[in-house]
């Protein structure tokens, strides 16, 4: 029962965020106790996740209804655009931290260990030479092999790039008011591509753990490899879900050629995930 008071849109008081926080709290508590191995069991994790999801869902449904019932002024639309844009910026900075770690290790710490810092090398790590990939002078996690870039990773690159294109087709279709059917088809294509990417990603991980002995424990290479690709994978998962939801909304007849920020927001997010992957492909797989 929110209202347009004056020229500003002011939502009604709501407890969604509060309940969402409780959900997160229980979830975090569950994870933490699991990590500490205090045998609390998985219930808090499931419960927390469930509660969180329910209220994320309610919250977004609320927004969607407001938007569909035309409560939103151009200003609110701008608000959401700016909001999404800067949220994505903060995501970029999150990945920056891990890329930073990768560059630091390769440009500084490994060369030092490998001899550019004479004493460190001579006194502590005699005989270690700086190669990449490496699991460090302690050879933590033992011998391992890496995923060749021009196999599955390259395929995945193509998949993501194509998905970017199909998404753009869908967007233009929607914007220029072409037939809904085509738009929706393009969207499903995008979702499918995203899902396939994820499938291959999982394959790749199973290969790494199963046959290559490439694991999180495999020194700095394993650490950076799995943390970067892992967090990216999570974002793809989220992105694919959001794309699916948008598609369902399209099928329900949401969005107009003029106003479809929900759609665009997801599109931006998807392109961001796409770009991060290019970074990964270049710095993690190829170089």
């Amino acid at each position: 029962m929110s209202s347009q008071s004056g020229t500003y849109f002011v939502p009604a008081p709501t407890a969604w965020p509060f309940y969402l926080t409780i959900g997160l709290f229980i979830l975090v508590f569950g994870i933490v106790e699991f990590l500490n191995g205090n045998g609390v069991g998985p219930i808090p994790v499931y419960a927390g996740t469930a509660i969180s999801l329910v209220f994320i869902w309610t919250w977004f449904r609320g927004i969607i209804n407001e938007s569909e019932s035309g409560k939103y002024s151009a200003q609110v639309d701008r608000t959401y655009r700016w909001g999404m844009a800067w949220f994505i910026f903060s995501e970029v900075m999150f990945f920056a931290a891990f890329f930073g770690a990768l560059f630091y290790a390769r440009q500084l710490s490994l060369p030092w260990l490998g001899g550019t810092d004479l004493m460190t090398h001579a006194v502590l790590w005699e005989g270690f030479e700086n190669t990449w990939p490496t699991n460090g002078p302690g050879a933590l996690g033992g011998e391992f092999d890496t995923i060749p870039p021009w196999g599955v990773p390259f395929l995945n690159t193509l998949l993501l790039l194509t998905s970017g294109v199909t998404l753009t087709f869908a967007h233009h279709g929607l914007r220029d008011g072409h037939s809904r059917r085509n738009v929706i088809l393009w969207m499903w294509a995008t979702v499918a591509l995203g899902a396939t990417f994820l499938y291959f990603q999982v394959e790749e991980y199973m290969e790494a753990y199963g046959h290559l002995n490439l694991t999180l424990e495999s020194g700095i290479y394993g650490s950076t490899f799995f943390m970067l690709t892992g967090f990216h994978g999570m974002h793809v998962t989220l992105g694919t879900l959001m794309l699916a939801i948008i598609t369902f909304r399209l099928m329900k007849g949401h969005f107009t050629p003029e106003s479809h920020f929900g759609f665009e927001g997801v599109a931006w997010y998807w392109h961001f995930v796409d770009v991060v992957w290019l970074g990964l492909f270049l710095f993690v797989y190829i170089i």
Binding site: A105, N135, G136, G138, L140, G219, I220, G222, S223
Partner: peptide, 22 residues
């Protein structure tokens, strides 16, 4: 702090020289 977490619980070695970290 995420890297700290994985270093402690998931055996990554961002901050361990033996693994090539620092």
């Amino acid at each position: 702090v995420t890297m700290l977490l994985t270093d402690k619980f998931f055996g990554t070695s961002f901050f361990t020289a033996a693994g090539g970290g620092d």
